[in-house]
């Protein structure tokens, strides 16, 4: 295939199926965004990357999968039943992941924090927690076995047609759920007493504790908030791809990248970064050389590097270490 022809066929593809790529990109991006928020919040309060966050996401996925399978069995959901199941899946996924995130904080971080361990120690214990959760899931549910949820709605169900392109119900559900949850998280961080605590700790932990902020409690709540979002994302993701014990690693890397792209420590930045990474990934598929899809990862990370060269703090990041 000639080089010129290659680019032309890429643009032709996009011309033909622009809205489909757009929808798929937004759907993936919504999931990345919800996970990215967890990375960014924890970075804000602790100044470190929670490497076990991908596994927190995975746990929520499994919870949602087993819930829907348990309720539906071989049946296909419809109408109000579908809506109820989606809400329940998000809730249960979020709850399980929040508990797991809380557990990770208690076991892997708090003891180190108490002893004023160096940052590297946190990193290692996070990796340990990540392996533990991944292996546990592998032992329980099988290694590399994709487990699909019950069919919450007709597979491939089309919600409506936009510019002649069918938009799937799943896409709409993912995007709406992400928007609602991200707005709620943003309001919590910006406009509540709790959020003020989170912001205070991320600016200056020591001073905020002198001002009466309970640091332990604030950090726990931060993990719970990030975990809940990741768990909900895990459920939404499982509706498309099923869930597998190592899903947290691959998706986690994308979400972490999204958090950095948007400006680590910045909640809105993480959301924006997630959506952008989803869209980059989708729109770069037609430009994959010889159809090798792994080129999309190369394109995505090239763009990331360029953005970081121009704006080292990320798109919305002002200065590192601020959650706002």
């Amino acid at each position: 295939m000639g080089f010129e022809h290659f680019w032309l066929s890429g643009f032709h593809q996009i011309h033909v199926a622009f809205w489909t790529y757009f929808a798929v990109g937004l759907q993936n991006g919504a999931v990345y965004a919800m996970i990215a928020v967890g990375y960014t919040l924890v970075y804000g309060v602790l100044g470190l990357i929670n490497f076990a966050h991908g596994e927190v996401f995975m746990c929520g996925g499994f919870a949602g999968v087993f819930l829907t399978r348990g309720v539906l069995g071989e049946r296909v959901g419809s109408g109000w039943g579908s809506i109820g199941l989606i809400l329940a899946g998000i809730l249960i996924g979020g709850l399980v992941s929040a508990l797991v995130a809380m557990g990770v904080e208690r076991v892997a971080y708090r003891p180190l924090r108490r002893r004023h361990a160096p940052k590297l120690a946190f990193l290692i214990s996070a990796i340990g927690a990540s392996y533990f959760l991944q292996t546990l899931a592998g032992k329980e549910f099988g290694y590399g076995v994709n487990i699909f949820p019950g069919q919450v709605f007709e597979p491939g169900q089309v919600a409506f047609t936009m510019f002649g392109t069918p938009i799937h119900t799943l896409t709409i559900v993912s995007i709406i759920a992400a928007i609602v949850m991200l707005v709620v998280a943003d309001r919590i961080v910006r406009a509540t007493r709790l959020g003020r605590g989170i912001r205070a700790v991320s600016q200056d932990a020591e001073t905020s504790s002198l001002m009466g902020v309970n640091i332990d409690r604030t950090i726990t709540i931060t993990f719970i908030l990030g975990g809940a979002l990741a768990g909900a994302a895990g459920f939404l993701y499982s509706l498309q791809s099923g869930i597998v014990q190592n899903a947290g690693t691959e998706i986690g890397i994308y979400a972490f990248t999204a958090a950095v792209l948007g400006g680590i420590g910045n909640l809105r930045g993480a959301a924006l970064g997630g959506l952008l990474i989803g869209l980059f990934g989708s729109f770069s598929v037609p430009f994959a050389f010889e159809g090798n899809v792994q080129w999309t990862e190369i394109y995505t990370f090239l763009i990331l590097v360029f953005v970081l060269i121009i704006r080292p703090t990320g798109i919305l990041g002002e200065k590192s270490g601020r959650t706002a």
Partner: peptide, 20 residues
């Protein structure tokens, strides 16, 4: 011909790549 690196047999692919 096209290559979609696998996710489950150590190919380093990502599940989210299948949809696009």
């Amino acid at each position: 011909t096209q290559q979609i690196p696998n996710v489950n047999t150590g190919g380093g692919g990502t599940t989210t790549e299948y949809a696009p």
